[in-house]
Nucleic acid binder design. Structure first.
Lengths: 243, 243
DNA sequence: GGGGAGAGATGCCGC
DNA sequence: GCGGCATTTCTCCCC
């Protein structure tokens, strides 16, 4: 398949999405440097001038540049070269294209944003609205708050009016979660001048090492899973997975 | 553009890569749950049965499933539906396709792996080979080692034969880096029964908060940047960015 | 398969 | 812009 430089640059000048499959070699220089030898790849150039390069396997793009990247096609040494640069980010990428397998531009219309349930935010909302999930008498004061103590998921008082800090994790809690909670507690103790602050890790599970660390420093664990509100949304339909 | 269910399923049964641009609506259920209303997207199905769905802007796929996902196309309520499931991961995704804009399958050949320079590993190698970057008299013993103390970037002795642990960061060090270093040091002190172990964060820069924390617990900082070996590789050619 | 850590992480929000 | 943090993080390596 033939693709001339003019056609490519004209496509780039439009606000369209470009889909290119080709055999190419890639040089990148920016936050790091990389070289990828010749092979077949799929290149997507989006309307915001994000560029993604995918190999035939794997989830992550093998090379990419962020939105706002400038691109120009040139013909050099008998092959098409796509030069990409992002001056503010000091990033450069050259794609040496030896063969174009297919090329298309698309006018895409998509104003939709994803709705997602089951995040850590949903989890802290659930605890805030259902404080008995933590323990009887727990009184939440705030959630997801950027305080001078740090970004605390849920903050409140227990039945004895002792301060309680809760760190939520949607997955199995590891010792980074424990360290994070410990950091908040240390800061609160310093700033409020109190010596007793309870800390609770709320997660579906916790690793053995993290649990040990948690106990060693006198913190607590509650087994709580993030909610999946959309299950309600799906209920009226054929259930996902029924096939 | 018309695309029948049979053709789609036959394409799926091959070991090829599928590129599809279409208007679709997406339901996902797995690690979380999501819903994305109707709009134009690009769908890539790779030869390892990874599926990626991209909107016309942004770097990250808006929906995706990992390699090894089972997929089947069906015709339902007047539209093409692509059902995806990954039993071991308990993930499900339904793509309701109202209009196919383009469809192609590709036989891609690509055995290349990326070569990358400027990683944290390169940085610890550089320090190991040039210990004076840390300070005169520093004697490195090991690098990038999984020890019982943790995964330590560089480990050695200073001119006074005191133990030194170095944590490298290729970007600006934050207080997670400080906590990581602190965790290794605490463990070494416990297990070796020594009370004096020096800790150094080596990074191009460090945030003000992290530096404060570092000083508070008696650790040190060295301003060191990761190397970019490939600059040598590129030297013979037209330099990247010269256009 | 889980744990631990890096990544050219990305994306979001707040200051 | 940076900082702080979650992410359906992804990827790699090692146990």
């Amino acid at each position: 398949m033939e693709l001339d430089v003019l056609a490519f640059n004209e496509a780039l000048s439009r606000n369209s999405v470009i889909l290119l499959s080709c055999c190419c070699e890639i040089h990148y220089s920016g936050r790091a440097e990389s070289f990828l030898g010749s092979g077949d790849r799929i290149i997507i150039i989006k309307s915001d001038k994000t560029i993604l390069i995918h190999q035939p396997v794997g989830s992550a793009p093998i090379n990419y540049m962020k939105d706002g990247t400038s691109m120009v096609a040139v013909f050099e040494d008998g092959r098409l070269v796509l030069r990409c640069h992002n001056i503010p980010l000091k990033e450069y990428m050259d794609i040496f294209i030896s063969k174009v397998h297919s090329f298309q531009q698309l006018q895409m219309e998509d104003g939709e944003k994803i709705r997602l349930a089951g995040s850590e935010r949903d989890m802290s909302d659930m605890i805030y609205d259902n404080p008995q999930l933590i323990e009887p008498g727990f009184k939440p004061l705030s959630r997801e708050e950027h305080t001078k103590y740090g970004f605390i998921d849920v903050f409140g008082y227990d039945r004895n009016n002792a301060l309680v800090v809760i760190e939520c994790k949607r997955y199995s809690a590891d010792f980074k979660a424990v360290e994070q909670l410990q950091r908040y507690i240390t800061k609160i103790k310093q700033l409020k001048g109190v010596d007793k602050v309870r800390g609770i890790v709320a997660a579906p599970e916790i690793s053995a090492n993290a649990l040990q660390m948690l106990k060693d420093i006198g913190l607590e664990f509650r087994a709580i899973s993030p909610p999946k509100y959309l299950e309600r949304f799906n209920r009226g339909q054929k259930r996902l997975g029924e096939f």
